[in-house]
Computed example of a mutant assay.
Amino acid sequence: MYNGIGLTTPRGSGTNGYVQRNWASVRKTKDSVNYRTEEEIAKLDSASNKQPNREILDHERKRKIEVKCAELEDSLEEQGLPREEIAARVAAFRAKLSESSSGDKDVSKDEFGRVA
């Protein structure tokens, strides 16, 4: 006998006395389905379509400018120009790029509205 269930002794019963759980009476834990309302669906959709972080976009723009300036500096060094002239040209190029990109307030986007 196990917790008051089963035979006190399996002798003469024709069984080995092993007690099993009755799985036929087990209830499903999920009887009802909770469907989402239209407002909840709209709220979830609007939360998933976040706008990109402005600071990250600015950092990417500055990084691209610095990459172009580094490429210009490498090409000028290969030409054999003096260090002062290279620094002056790179500074002018950096100023030109930063002024042209800062004037572009609208971020370029692809056909799906993602930042390109």
Rank of each mutant, 00 (worst) to 15 (best):
Y2W: 08
N3P: 01
G4D: 02
I5W: 05
L7N: 12
L7W: 06
T8Q: 11
T9L: 08
T9A: 02
T9R: 11
P10A: 05
P10N: 10
R11G: 05
R11M: 06
R11C: 04
R11K: 13
S13A: 13
T15W: 01
T15P: 03
N16E: 10
N16M: 04
G17T: 12
Y18R: 14
Y18M: 12
Y18E: 14
Y18F: 12
V19F: 13
V19R: 12
Q20F: 15
R21K: 15
R21Q: 13
N22G: 11
W23V: 13
W23E: 14
A24N: 15
A24W: 11
S25F: 10
R27S: 15
K28H: 14
K30S: 15
K30M: 13
D31P: 11
D31T: 15
D31G: 15
V33W: 10
V33I: 15
N34Q: 15
T37F: 13
E40P: 10
E40M: 12
I41C: 05
I41R: 12
I41S: 06
A42H: 06
A42S: 08
A42R: 14
K43I: 06
L44P: 03
L44G: 07
D45V: 04
A47M: 09
A47Y: 03
S48D: 07
K50Y: 00
Q51C: 00
Q51S: 07
P52S: 03
E55T: 03
I56G: 01
I56P: 00
L57M: 07
L57S: 02
L57V: 08
D58G: 08
H59N: 08
R61Q: 05
K62S: 09
K62C: 00
K62N: 10
E66L: 05
E66K: 10
V67R: 07
C69W: 02
C69F: 02
A70C: 04
A70T: 13
E71N: 14
E71C: 06
L72H: 02
L72Y: 07
D74G: 00
S75F: 02
L76E: 01
L76R: 00
E78K: 05
E78Y: 12
E78D: 03
E78C: 01
Q79W: 03
G80H: 07
